[in-house]
């Protein structure tokens, strides 16, 4: 059985990576749970190790977000010139939260809000995380309201933010559905699906 390692800059990108593999490469297996780098600053200096893993051992899917910067510039800055075809670094534009918003049906269901409130072009939103927090604040589910949004500052995430949204990604979110609203996700799906062909 083919195996792939998922690396994410935080727990949410890890959850997205795991879901992408499960949905797009159903015959593949993840030998390890995704590696959570706990911050992009810890991911970048160690990218070379994951490139080595892909070159010498097994494919690697690495997920981070652009935080509003230009994708091409970031990739040029972070990656060496030659990377193996089984190493993928995919960047969510502009944040992982955009990909969550992109599956508006599932998100509205999960948060128990009206789907009309969820923006349709999430890649173009300047601050998708704030957008997601605003939606969570309107949730009809009390536990979500209390844990996803900070009690002290409604603009900030609460202590259960990652837990709830990782759970959402693992159980409700669909990459294929979300792709129709997010061009950055759509491109990533093509590349991940190609992995299957590239390695045959």
């Amino acid at each position: 059985m083919k195996q792939i390692l998922v690396v994410g800059e935080d727990s949410l990108t890890c959850a997205l990576g795991a879901s992408l593999v499960a949905e797009l490469l159903p015959a593949w297996q993840m030998p390890l749970p995704p590696i959570d780098k706990k911050g992009v600053t810890k991911l970048i200096p160690e990218l070379h190790r994951y490139i080595r893993q892909a070159t010498e051992f097994r494919p690697v899917l690495c997920i981070a977000d652009t935080d509003g910067q230009c994708v091409k510039e970031l990739l040029d800055q972070w990656l060496p010139k030659h990377i193996p075809e089984n190493f993928l670094l995919r960047l969510a534009v502009s944040e992982a939260e955009s990909w969550l918003l992109a599956d508006h049906e599932a998100l509205a269901n999960f948060l128990e809000i009206s789907p009309a409130r969820v923006p349709r072009t999430p890649d173009e939103i300047a601050d998708p995380k704030r957008n997601l927090l605003n939606l969570a604040r309107r949730s009809k589910n009390r536990v979500i309201r209390q844990e996803v949004v900070s009690r002290f500052d409604p603009e900030k995430q609460g202590s259960g933010y990652n837990q709830h949204f990782c759970h959402f990604v693992g159980t409700h979110w669909s990459a294929q559905r979300a792709a129709s609203n997010s061009p950055s996700l759509k491109r990533s799906i093509v590349r991940i699906t190609n992995l299957e062909n590239a390695l045959n």
Binding site: L32, I35, R49, Y50, F57
Partner: peptide, 19 residues
């Protein structure tokens, strides 16, 4: 063997074993 291989090719022991 699989874990040892993953470590020899770039991962660190914490990434492979602690999970």
């Amino acid at each position: 063997e699989g874990e040892q291989n993953a470590i020899e090719h770039g991962l660190n022991p914490a990434e492979v074993l602690l999970p």
